[in-house]
Amino acid sequence: MNFGENKREGNKRTTMKTLMNGMARWLWGSFLLIPALLLVCVGTGAASEKKPFLDTIKSVDAPFDSRSVQQVQPVPQPTVVAKEEYQGGQFRVLARKEQIERHKCSNCHGEKEVKGKNAFTLTHGNVVVQHGREGSELACIDCHHPQDRDALEDKKGRKIDFDHSYQLCGQCHFRQKRDWLGGAHGKRVSYWAGERIIFNCTTCHDPHAPRFAKRFPATYSVPLN
């Protein structure tokens, strides 16, 4: 019995000893480890302080010639060189005049008398102006030139071509025009590369009712999984 107890005690002692030994070793080890860990920490700290992705992108200022992309084809729609500057210089916009059904307007709006059977459409009875604050919508001559019907006129009395209507729209919608010139409003035609050709204001917006009409979406989604 005694023998057994002693043995047990002895076991306890030995385990204590090994534990102490282990502790000492661990302590020594940790003394060595701490500076090593510190070094590692400093290292990772330095790594995490690298430039954010957005900043690295913004720091790229070498010019890129997007006309160097070979496969870009000319766009099928008629275009005109814009009369304004873009950050990269000259650009083109989609032409408008060809889209206007009865252009030129001076065919009717002239000296000679017009005798028409379809008086309703020929006098633009189909045009309902929904442009401007409700109840005080714009009148025709707010945009159209009062004398020369083949042109538009801005508030300063400048004659404006139908193809360059952004000059007219921009006098009220200057924020949109600024974004449009830069590329945050509107869109490019078909290609991200090649010469910059962008949609005109009137390509998307009906100048008589510029707000997009409410409608059903083109499709719907089913839940994932």
Partner: peptide, 30 residues
């Protein structure tokens, strides 16, 4: 081939802007 993605080309509102991030004159950089 220099074309826009189909979604960008189809968007009727011009909400989608696509371009080269390494081109300082691109729309996306603007």
């Amino acid at each position: 081939k220099g074309r826009l993605p189909a979604c960008v080309e189809a968007c009727p509102t011009g909400s989608r802007v696509f371009g080269n991030l390494l081109d300082p004159d691109s729309e996306i950089r603007y």
